[in-house]
Design a binder for these strands. Structure first.
Length: 692
RNA sequence: GGUCCGGUAGCUCAGUUGGUUAGAGCAGGGGACUCAUAAUCCCUUGGUCGGGGGUUCGAGUCCCUCCCGGACUACCA
């Protein structure tokens, strides 16, 4: 009996292009949807652009056009990228739509009626020049605890202290460079704690979430009272104004998941389907695919909203990990931050679809795209094993077509048909890597068959024409089974196979019965091998993308010091670091000389075993003057590599008692959270030399 | 520090409720074939299953403990 299944992938934010990290999710979801459709279920895939929030507003201002124009362009780009990766939505909407506004209003009313909303004044930093409240990341200032300068609004990167942005000393707005003022405004909160019992039960039932996620929620949230959820933002804000609270807007995370429903509504209006059959029916399954970063929005707030508003709860929330490339986080400078479009300019989307399928399981683990493995796996599995079956046998039966009756193949076809159930179960469970293994095992049985039956010899013997046709009929049927099983992953290969054998692949069940008597088209290349040079070209392109994208509008993140946006030097270094961390406030030379920077030699270095980030260094300033310094560079440097080298240290920093001992200074390093580069003076500098 | 997930052949991983001499693919070595996108096929070298204890007639599989890697989260700076 066909199931009714509603599937969503997380809504991509309208502030950036799709990249290969996003694609893990959209491909994972697309495979699952295609699988369900192939199985004959009434499965629909809905998505939309997530368009609201401060970031879009700021971007629009910077570009001097309306938010609507910004999000329209980005949505068009997103849809092109998805289409070219063969990711097929039944509807692709936008959170900035009439349908979404209406649904938000309706759900909001229910939440109000349920008595979950409370109001409170919140003190927030306000940028008087830009005329807007500042989210944490748009403020910089001095840490109230340790005095580190140029720290973000929520916590100190130097001492890790958490604070409210209003506690920052000498705060500066990243938007205008102005000094923000503390301003109180009314905010609306949802008292999630009222739903505690329900959420505890729903998350811990074992049916809706992966076990590690259920544990995580239990451990981190459900053990304590749930905090009120601040779901409003005062004007100006790009979003929907809250009807019964003029001047206030729903926070983007309120209207974003409702976007799933709004996209469904659009599809219903277009096709005549009944919305309530999808969102208010026990006969409909609802599956959300998301990344682990947005777990709690989808496993606490969202079920809470649905429950309160009287809609169906998610059947399952499938959570996946992040993408790494060659074992590391994607990096713009290393060229591994690959935009979907950049990939498409060099490589076939089938490669990535297959590779992701081969690596994905139902777990939350991160997925590594090793470029070498990528090339090897695709070439060996898809080209060498699967496509090869067709390309080595099709041309022998171009003239005759397939045999009228399926010949004896020693049970090969029947075995592969019987495997269908297990492969299907693996797809159903999102255990694609298992499905791919099972399918490749079948391919490994099919090629030896061709080898043993030598069609290339049969063809030379006029008496063997029937045998030749039979052998190729078997080989092509075995190939077709693989194409059917792979169809959710490789829709294009399935289509090509349909054309080759004049029988379109539309159903999983086609793998159970051999195809006979059809004509065979002239064989056309189905899939090119990956060439190493294309991979490298893609990486190089990505480096160029990164370099080209950043310097352009400095207005996107205006630094307090004006930047010349025209690059006039030959090196054309990108502007990311500056954008990431804008220039600090002007200081005088008197301020500067207060900081006594000295060349120092690392004479001892050891790890602090109990600390994640710290190395203990003993620095020599020469002449028997030493400093013990704890440096947060454990992740980037090995102690033995540091001993003997010269570094720059802040020699007059007030010593600070740390858990592990007294820290008597700082070692100067460039870079941010994910990297650290120690500074080394040029040849000739001696320990103790002061930097002027 | 807490929670979770891993640690099985050079690499990527399978190993079902504990049951006979621990597997696959890739890579490596040898051979064959030539239909096929230097693809394919056959043979083959690799492992005290992270270490140590324990339960058991029997443990990669269960328990304890330690070590290592990763993710999340926190603390300290």
């Amino acid at each position: 009996m066909p199931r009714r299944i509603l599937v969503t992938a997380a809504l991509p934010y309208a502030n950036g292009h799709i990249h290969i990290g996003h694609l893990v999710e959209y491909i994972q979801t697309d495979i699952w949807v295609r699988f369900q459709k192939l199985r004959g279920h009434d499965c629909r895939y809905f998505c939309a652009d997530d368009t609201h929030g401060t970031a879009i507003m700021i971007r629009a201002r910077a570009e001097g056009r309306s938010e609507e124009a910004v999000i329209a362009d980005m949505q068009a780009a997103h849809e092109r990228d998805f289409a070219d990766f063969q990711i097929e939505f039944d509807n692709y909407g936008s959170t900035h739509s009439a349908e979404n506004r209406a649904l938000c209003g309706e759900i909001w009313d229910k939440i109000r009626a349920a008595g979950l909303v409370k109001e409170a004044n919140v003190e927030q930093l306000f940028d008087p020049e830009a005329g807007t409240f500042l989210a944490d990341r748009f403020v910089r200032g001095t840490c109230p605890k340790c005095g580190a300068t140029d720290q973000p609004g929520d916590n100190c990167s130097s001492c890790g202290h958490h604070y409210s942005p209003v506690d920052l000393v000498d705060p500066v707005s990243k938007l205008s460079g102005a000094t923000p003022v503390v301003k109180s405004s009314l905010h609306l909160f949802i008292e999630l704690e009222q739903l505690h019992g329900f959420l505890a039960e729903w998350t811990q039932s074992g049916e809706h979430l992966q076990p590690e996620i259920a544990n995580y929620l239990q451990g981190h949230f459900l053990g304590d009272p749930l905090r009120d959820w601040d779901i409003s933002r005062p004007a100006p804000y790009f979003g929907f104004e809250i009807p019964d609270s003029p001047g206030n807007y729903w926070y983007v995370w309120f209207d974003a998941p409702i976007g799933y429903m709004a996209s469904t509504r659009q599809w219903c209006d277009r096709t005549g389907a009944n919305f309530d059959d999808w969102w208010k029916s026990d006969d409909c399954e609802i599956h959300h695919f998301i990344g682990k970063d947005i777990t709690y929005f989808h496993t606490l707030f969202w079920p809470g909203m649905l429950k309160t508003a009287g809609y169906s709860l998610p059947t399952k929330v499938h959570i996946h990990g992040f993408l790494t490339v060659d074992g590391e986080k994607m990096s713009k400078s290393k060229g591994t931050f690959v935009a979907a479009r950049t990939y498409l300019n060099r490589l076939d989307p089938s490669y990535l679809r297959y590779f992701y399928a081969a690596k994905l399981s139902s777990r939350v683990d991160d997925l590594d795209l090793s470029l070498k493995e990528f090339e090897a796996k695709v070439n060996t599995d898809l080209v060498g094993k699967v496509v090869n079956l067709a390309s080595r046998s099709a041309k022998f039966v171009e003239k005759t077509g397939l045999s009228a009756k399926y010949p004896d193949d020693g049970g090969l076809f029947a075995h592969a048909a019987a495997q269908g159930a297990e492969i299907a179960a693996a797809y159903e469970a999102c255990d694609y890597s298992r499905a791919m293994r099972l399918i490749m095992a079948l391919a490994d049985r099919a090629n030896p068959f061709v080898e043993e039956n030598k069609p290339w010899e049969l063809r030379k013997d006029a008496d063997q024409t029937q045998r030749l046709q039979d052998v190729c009929t078997i080989a092509l049927n075995l190939f077709r089974q693989l194409a059917i099983y792979l169809a959710p992953v490789l829709p294009k290969l399935a289509a090509q196979t349909g054309e080759l054998l004049h029988d379109e692949i539309t159903s999983w069940d086609q793998a159970a019965a051999p195809l006979v008597g059809t004509p065979v088209a002239k064989f056309k290349h189905m899939l090119k091998r990956i060439e190493e040079k294309d991979l490298y070209a893609m990486i190089d392109d990505s480096k160029e993308d990164a370099a080209a994208a950043t310097p352009a509008p400095a207005s996107e993140a205006p630094a307090s010091g004006a930047m010349d946006v025209t690059i006039t030097d030959a090196y054309a270094d990108g502007g990311e670091p500056l954008a990431e961390e804008p220039l600090a406030e002007e200081c005088t030379i008197d301020d500067f000389v207060k900081v006594d920077l000295r060349v120092a030699r690392v004479v001892e270095a050891s790890e602090v075993p109990e600390a994640n980030k710290l190395l203990r260094l003993r620095l020599s300033l020469g002449g028997g003057v030493y400093r013990q310094v704890f440096a947060g560079i454990k992740k980037f440097y090995k102690p033995e590599d540091l001993v003997g080298r010269l570094v720059v240290c802040v020699a007059n920093l007030k010593p600070r008692q740390m858990k592990f001992g007294l820290s008597e200074g700082m070692v100067v390093a460039a870079g941010g959270k994910d990297a650290a580069y120690l500074l080394t003076p040029d040849e000739g500098a001696k320990p103790g030399d002061r930097l002027h």
